[in-house]
């Protein structure tokens, strides 16, 4: 299996810059979660990797080869806007897509049987898509992305609109494919799922990669509000003017503090005890949601500093 690598991928729509020199790699067997606000560029980035759109500059590589039509045919792609022929039966639809990916009719039929059974929709082979429930339509859509046993999986918001049981099935399939060595790249707004499933996460904002790494790397204390301090009896805004505090923001019953350069927790503690009784002092590891909020829209975090 080969890695999927974005190298300087840039894309504009007229005067709007959708992607700006995007660089990251999804290694074989890795599940990579792609998060970002609406319009941040996630869908454009995934479409370029799937071969649906062309980059203005840079390229996506599969191993050493830039992704072209033959490479993209080996990828499984699930677009954000789900789409199937509404009047075509499940079986005909999947056979058609399998053949489009280069399978013979026999290979496509065998894969169709396997995946529909695996996803619990084998009873609906001969039903047109528009007679199925939304959840089952989503399962057919996933089967469409998997029908040719792809070497790379690219899924745009795969969990959107799924019921809990379908979310579990989808998660299991992604883990299974990753265990087979397939690089899995997906975007999602459901950060709890990203946190649960992904080996690595990329946060995209305004077309640029704002952060990228494993969850532990991303959540490691950085130059952010990483100390939580609760001081009983201290007036609100007590950290204001304190030399050890670079910035702070209220959080729950205390404050989140960023230490000023050259100061340690001891300096902060010494300052704090002068304002009241210190009930808590600990390092805060941000959740992905907090991280996302800080990276994507820092102006909204209410930091007075």
């Amino acid at each position: 299996m080969k890695p999927l690598t974005y190298k300087g991928v840039t894309k504009s729509y007229g005067s709007h810059q959708a992607l700006d020199r995007l660089d990251f790699t999804v290694h074989p067997g890795q599940i990579f979660g792609f998060v970002g606000g609406n319009g941040a560029g996630k869908t454009t980035a995934l479409r370029i990797a799937a071969g649906v759109l062309a980059a203005d500059q840079g390229a996506v590589y599969w191993g050493d080869s830039p992704v072209g039509r033959p490479e993209a045919a080996r990828f499984g792609y699930m677009p954000e806007e789900r789409g199937l022929y509404p009047k075509m039966t499940v079986a005909k639809q999947l056979l058609y897509l399998g053949r489009l990916h280069g399978q013979s009719t026999a290979q496509a039929r065998s894969a169709m049987t396997r995946w529909t059974r695996r996803l619990g929709i084998d009873a609906h082979h001969d039903k047109p898509i528009d007679t199925l429930s939304l959840g089952n339509q989503q399962r057919v859509q996933l089967a469409a992305a998997l029908i040719h046993d792809p070497d790379v999986l690219i899924l745009d918001e795969p969990f959107s609109g799924l019921d809990p049981s379908a979310v579990d099935d989808m998660s299991e399939v992604l883990r299974e494919k990753a265990a087979q060595g397939v690089p899995v790249l997906f975007s999602s707004h459901q950060l709890d799922l990203v946190e649960r499933l992904c080996d690595r996460v990329g946060v995209i904002a305004a077309g640029r990669l704002a952060a990228e790494g494993s969850l532990d790397e991303l959540r490691a204390p950085r130059t952010g509000h990483s100390l939580y301090l609760e001081v009983e009896g201290a007036p609100p805004g007590w950290p204001e003017g304190t030399p050890a505090v670079a910035s702070y923001r209220p959080d729950a019953a205390g404050v989140l503090v960023e230490l000023a350069d050259g100061h340690t927790e001891n300096d902060l503690l010494a300052e704090a005890v002068r304002h009241g009784t210190v009930r808590a002092l600990n390092r805060r590891r941000p959740t992905l949601t907090e991280l996302f909020r800080d990276l994507v829209d820092p102006a909204k975090d209410g930091t007075p500093a």
């Binding site: 649906v52 993209a72 489009l100 990916h101």
Partner: peptide
């Protein structure tokens, strides 16, 4: 929206 699935192939 099937066109996007088709254009991936």
């Amino acid at each position: 929206r099937i066109v996007e699935v088709l254009l991936a192939t």
